[in-house]
Amino acid sequence: MREQLSFRIFRWVVLIPLGLFTLMPLYVMVTSALKPLPDVQGPFEWWPSNLTLRPFVDIWTTVPLAEYFVNSLIVTISATVFSVIIAIFASYAISRYRFRGRGAFSGVVLSTQMFPGVLFLLPLFLVFVNIDKALGDTFLYQTRLGLIVTYLTFTLPFSIWMLASYFDGIPRDLDESAQVDGASAIGALFRIILPSARPGIVAVAVYSFMTAWGEILFASQLTNSESRTLSIGLQNYSTEVNVYWNQVMAASLVVSVPIVVGFLILQRYLVAGLTAGAVKS
């Protein structure tokens, strides 16, 4: 089929500006990370005149970036693993059983997902402070454990919702015939559903990881210098008089590369996993 000229023009009128808009900050990030400090303090240089890898060395000493990295990893991985495991069981129940309370449960899961985080931040803050006070030690307020709990507020409902719709896409005959053959419900879940849902589980885990890795609101109030994560720590590359923009860009690049590469490698799964839920609803 031939396309009209007007459509071909439209195509490039759309793609070129959108491409520039999308890639411009990425270009700034990469090139500025390779410039020495004086070159990012004057007017913006389109092309770095003095290339250096120095910022990639300095970022680890200007702020305790490695500590932030470890904190982010611990919090993010814990929240992800915990919510995916719990979500697997809950989603299996929602997808395969009709039981009283099913509607109410999935209603809560769906609705909490759209409520603003600040609605949960204030009470959790207060509850954490008072639990710690009652116990006489800091367990939750500004600790990694407390942050993991708050991260579950968004990773868990999201995981349940996405996995349930993924399980819905797996033919029922598969696990039903296994149950006829004598397998228990749990047996069918582990032997039949989980192997065929692997792409969906990977997608859910990666999305939970990505959301938690980028979270700012909770981290800004519920971490201190010891439990600080990357999302807040990255804003510390400045003194009263100076912002080390080349280091900010280098650090941004370093914390983004693993996520972006992971996303791109798993892209096919992720797109399928995400849209399975959205297209159906």
Partner: peptide, 17 residues
């Protein structure tokens, strides 16, 4: 893939840039 990069990037890294 290029268009999806801002989505994959951690929010703070994109915004700080």
């Amino acid at each position: 893939t290029l268009f999806l990069i801002p989505y994959a990037l951690p929010a703070y890294a994109g915004i700080i840039t």
